[in-house]
């Protein structure tokens, strides 16, 4: 049965999972350094989000086919 509590994103779980999923072996010291950098990175990622942003704001780059060449 589902809990009534709203789930919260857990950066530690995410970090462990993503590092493991990457398949790149790193040492414990490197992992500590990357964990710190990951916190900074997620802080920056949060800045790119905007509450209520319109769906019309699309991602860049937008890929479109090139126009046909004039014959």
């Amino acid at each position: 049965m589902a809990s009534d509590e709203k789930p919260v994103a857990d950066d530690d779980v995410m970090f462990e999972g993503l590092v493991r999923a990457s398949g790149v072996p790193i040492s414990d010291q490197e992992k500590q350094d990357i964990r710190k950098a990951y916190s900074s990175l997620m802080g920056l990622a949060a800045r790119t989000r905007k509450s209520g942003r319109s769906w019309d704001v699309r991602m860049l780059p937008v890929f479109s086919p090139k126009p046909p060449r004039e014959s």
Partner: peptide, 17 residues
């Protein structure tokens, strides 16, 4: 390696910003 920690949603939100 930091790039392996960026999820698709983070990448797309950054591209929208």
């Amino acid at each position: 390696m930091l790039g392996s920690l960026v999820r698709a949603v983070d990448y797309i939100q950054a591209q929208r910003r």
